[in-house]
Nucleic acid binder design. Sequence first.
DNA 1: TAGATTGTTAATCGATTAACAATC
DNA 2: TAGATTGTTAATCGATTAACAATC
Lengths: 218, 218
Amino acid sequence: MKTKRKIPSAPSVRRLPSYLTIVKQLQHEGNEHVSGTLIAREMGLESIQIRKDLAITGITGKPRIGYPVEGLVDAIERFLGWYDVQDAVLVGVGNLGSALMGYREFQSHCLNFVAAFDTDPRKIGARVHGIYVLSMETLEIEVRQWGIKIAVLTVPAEEAQAVTDILVRAGIEGIWNFTNVKLKVSDNVMVQREDLSSGYAMLSVMMKIKDKTVKKSS
Amino acid sequence: MKTKRKIPSAPSVRRLPSYLTIVKQLQHEGNEHVSGTLIAREMGLESIQIRKDLAITGITGKPRIGYPVEGLVDAIERFLGWYDVQDAVLVGVGNLGSALMGYREFQSHCLNFVAAFDTDPRKIGARVHGIYVLSMETLEIEVRQWGIKIAVLTVPAEEAQAVTDILVRAGIEGIWNFTNVKLKVSDNVMVQREDLSSGYAMLSVMMKIKDKTVKKSS
DNA sequence: TAGATTGTTAATCGATTAACAATC
DNA sequence: TAGATTGTTAATCGATTAACAATC
């Protein structure tokens, strides 16, 4: 049991998908090796950071040569668990929910939506990006029956906790939460919360600071 | 010139929109004051972190009482520049682009889409969530003419840099980049890059770690 | 008054960056 | 061989957490 029980750093994990995209592209172009230096340039980061990040996947490179492209793709996908298909449900077929169902990149990350759920009778029975929309009433039974482990939550804030309770009861293990609600779940259920507004906050502040700097210097 | 030239920490800035949502809700419910402790409970964080974060907006509270709800909303919105309307264009009317145009929360953050742009003749002339879709050919002239400062970029990766070059030439100052491309821009243009996959990477890793822990202990 | 909460200063923790020997 | 690149160890930087006096 040589398990290195070390929790990987969140910033590193978050950068891995970008590295994966770059390396897959290089693989597609027929490259055999890739250096941390090259990835760094592509990302606008320092090469030392790339090496540190890649180290958590267990890949090793060769001085002067770099990392084997194929081995690196494997290592990242294995580390993230993105090598065999994960079935998931999406709950809340609004604008954002529909967009996520159609987001191509998730397929290449082995995230597979088997069904979507909504309360709106006009949506139920329809197909969105080829995925059937089922009645919310059947959510618990379907999730349990098919043993779905992952749910993407794109319902209105008011419904978020109620839907979550159903999902947890049905045996869900991970919730990707796009609502701005802090979900209460038993601690064997993992929740990843996304906040679309936080990126806009960053942009706003960056622009404001630049503005001030310009005004000051002129 | 008593300008405290101190760059606010990114994690703090990113949390502010969530605080704003909570405090606005409390305001709506008629509360006069709110404590850091309460916000902390609502967010699942420590109260000291809330106090530290709020401090960057310049708000001050009163011991035992907390922060004035109205003053706090003001302070956060002022700090983020979310108090008067910012006109923006969206480029790339795909699934994600359409979803962002319809995302209600942005309106309350004073982000206003005046037009969208696409190359697809079937989309041009249509309206999406009430916003007209114009031809990409007119992008440069429209952005320049109306003095638009902010662009949301949701085009395919292959087009990202070319569109960016047009935007920069037209005088754009901030780009909210949803493509997985590191954009090259002159350094007076701010770019905020979003990576939807990074959240899924986090969820995947959290679930994998939990899995191992469970297996180990059983 | 008593005690909850703020704001400040200090301590800890974790992530990034630097330095450099090993090596392909 | 020469020099670019890796992986490791140490240093720096920044964010979070702790402690606590001030005070409403």
